[in-house]
Amino acid sequence: MLERVAVHQTRLRTPGLGLDARGVALGAKGVVLLPSIDRLVAFLALYTRQGSLADILRSLAIEVVRSKLGAREVTLTFAAETSDRMDRIAEIARLAGGYTFTGTSRHFVQYRDAAAPFGYDVAQISAGDATLWLYHNTFSQSYEAERKIDVRSLVLRLEPHADPSTGREPGPRWLAAEAGLGPALIHYFVRSGVTAEVGVAEWPPASSFETGRSSGTCFACPSCRSA
C-alpha cells in the first residue's frame, strides 16, 4: 500500500509531495485524523501545553468528515511548512490517539515514523472524486467533508467561565466535568494558580449487585476538605 522513501530518492508518485532539505517527504499541508471530538480536545490540550496554538491557527481548519462506510471522524488541516513542525505535531497526534499525514491537495500519505525516517509514498493513487484520500500502512480511506468546526467557537466553549451566581454566597465551590476533560482542567487550574483538590466521582450503584459508573472528574476548593 505504501512504500518507504529511500535515501536520495528524487521522484515521488503522490501529487504535491516533495522532499525537504533533509530529504523528508513533505507536502504543503499536514492532516491529523482523530476518531472523535473528545480526541480533538485532547489534541488541543496537549498542543497548548508545549506552545501556542497561534503557531498553526492562521492555516488551521477543523472538519467533521465521513468515510464511505458512514463513520464520522475529525480532521485538522494546517500548513506543514517544515518537517520540524510536522515531527512535533505527529508526536502529539500519536499521544491523542490520532494519525498524521502530509500532502498538498486531496491525497495525503502517512507522515514519517521510526519505520520510515524519510517518509512514505503511495504505490498507486486511488481513483475517485472524494474530497480527501488518506493513505496509511494499515488502511487507505476516502472521506467527504460533512461540516466545519469553528476553531474560535470551540476554544471559547472549552474555556471555563465563572457563573455570575457563584459570587453571591460564600462557601466552597464545586466543578464537575467529564473524565476526558479532567487533564485539561487540571492544567488550566495549575497555570492560573488556583488551589483546589481533584478526585473521581461515581454514581452510587442502583443495587449491591451493580457497580457504579463514573460521572466525571470533580474539583473542589480547599474548604471542601472537611466536608
Rank of each mutant, 00 (worst) to 15 (best):
213 R>K: 13
192 S>N: 08
146 E>I: 06
138 T>G: 09
212 G>Y: 06
170 P>I: 04
207 S>D: 10
158 L>P: 02
155 V>D: 02
171 G>L: 00
132 L>P: 04
152 R>W: 09
172 P>G: 15
160 P>G: 06
170 P>H: 04
162 A>F: 03
184 A>P: 04
123 A>K: 10
210 E>M: 14
216 G>P: 00
210 E>R: 10
220 A>Y: 15
123 A>F: 12
176 A>D: 01
173 R>P: 01
209 F>N: 09
182 G>T: 01
148 K>P: 09
155 V>P: 02
220 A>F: 13
183 P>N: 12
140 S>T: 10
200 V>W: 00
208 S>L: 15
188 Y>G: 09
146 E>V: 15
174 W>C: 13
132 L>Y: 07
171 G>C: 07
168 R>C: 07
132 L>H: 01
160 P>V: 11
176 A>Q: 08
186 I>H: 12
138 T>V: 08
148 K>C: 08
154 L>Y: 05
188 Y>L: 07
141 Q>I: 09
170 P>C: 02
207 S>P: 03
187 H>Q: 14
145 A>Q: 11
168 R>Q: 11
182 G>F: 00
148 K>Q: 14
141 Q>H: 06
163 D>I: 10
166 T>W: 06
170 P>W: 02
180 G>F: 00
161 H>Q: 11
189 F>I: 04
174 W>R: 15
180 G>D: 00
148 K>A: 08
211 T>N: 09
177 A>Y: 05
180 G>N: 01
204 P>D: 08
196 A>G: 03
162 A>S: 02
187 H>I: 09
142 S>D: 05
217 T>A: 12
163 D>Y: 05
151 V>E: 04
209 F>A: 15
167 G>E: 01
188 Y>T: 13
205 P>K: 06
184 A>H: 03
173 R>Y: 07
168 R>W: 06
139 F>S: 11
141 Q>R: 07
144 E>N: 14
126 S>K: 08
129 D>E: 12
135 Y>S: 01
159 E>M: 13
206 A>W: 14
179 A>Y: 00
206 A>M: 15
128 G>F: 06
161 H>N: 07
153 S>A: 15
202 E>R: 15
130 A>S: 10
222 P>G: 11
201 A>C: 12
123 A>H: 12
165 S>H: 00
123 A>W: 06
124 Q>F: 13
173 R>W: 01
197 E>H: 05
173 R>E: 01
168 R>F: 14
188 Y>Q: 08
185 L>E: 03
147 R>C: 03
176 A>S: 04
175 L>K: 08
210 E>D: 13
127 A>S: 14
211 T>G: 14
